[in-house]
């Protein structure tokens, strides 16, 4: 019992700084989703049942841009591919949870993966710790989404520049990732592909999917190239 309390305390303490960061994303998501005319119930339903910052932000941006239903679905599937890796990486550490694993699976995403895998590496399997971390992040995400949606509903979007919030939020998410040459090359290729496709086929629904599928190939090529071998 004492050990469990200690694990809960550690989980709460270690997840708190990231919860603040997640809250800021959640706040942005709430505002942007409201801007995309999703409605409060839909904004909250997405946060409650999907619980994925990247998927939710991208989907809301695509809805705002008038993307087709099909292209939004394909893009979301592409974005979710990395969860396969996270799940595989966390499987051993969550193995003692047995049937509860199906509930804990809900937390398989970027931030819980980072904390969970680091904990399992140091102390071995610990489903309780992962549950506490996921629960804390989930609560932060839900509350922040709600506040963002309420705030967004109360203010004039053009006057306050909320339409600008979409691109600048994505820039703030993207820039810290651009640390290696292949990643920068992936981003630059996506810039090129999007520009060419928007010129040739303005407003094309498949631009984002094509950029998402093709541009990583250039990053991969550079990663495997002679200078990086």
């Amino acid at each position: 019992m004492d050990k469990n309390m200690k694990t809960i305390k550690t989980g709460l303490l270690e997840s708190l700084p990231l919860s603040i960061a997640i809250s800021t994303y959640g706040l942005s998501y709430g505002v942007l989703a409201n801007e995309a005319n999703l409605g409060l119930f839909a904004v909250m339903a997405m946060s409650l049942f999907v619980f994925s910052g990247s998927v939710q932000m991208v989907v809301v941006a695509m809805i705002s841009a008038g993307s087709s239903f099909g292209s939004v679905l394909i893009t979301s599937i592409l974005l979710n591919l990395r969860n396969l890796l996270y799940g595989a990486g966390l499987a051993e550490g969550l193995a003692p949870a047995k049937k509860w694993k199906w509930l804990l699976a809900f937390g398989v995403s970027d931030e819980p993966y980072v904390l969970g895998s680091s904990r399992f590496h140091k102390y071995g399997p610990d489903p309780l710790y992962f549950g506490v971390v996921t629960g804390t992040f989930y609560l932060a995400w839900i509350v922040a989404s709600f506040i963002g949606a309420i705030i967004g509903n109360e203010i004039d979007s053009q006057k306050w520049g909320l339409d600008l919030a979409f691109p600048v939020t994505f820039v703030a998410l993207l820039i810290p990732s651009l640390k290696e040459r292949p990643i920068v090359a992936t981003a630059l290729t996506a810039v090129l592909i999007t520009t060419v496709l928007e010129y040739l086929f303005p407003g094309n629904q498949f631009t984002i999917i094509i950029a998402g599928i093709v541009s990583p190939l250039i990053g991969l090529y550079l990663k495997g190239g002679p200078n990086n071998a």
Binding site: A65, L79, L84, F166, T186, A190, T195, I208, S215, G219
Partner: peptide
Amino acid sequence: LYFQYVPIGIITALIMK
């Protein structure tokens, strides 16, 4: 690696749009 690079491509394309 490919899975890791996909979000970079998608987010960049969204910004450019």
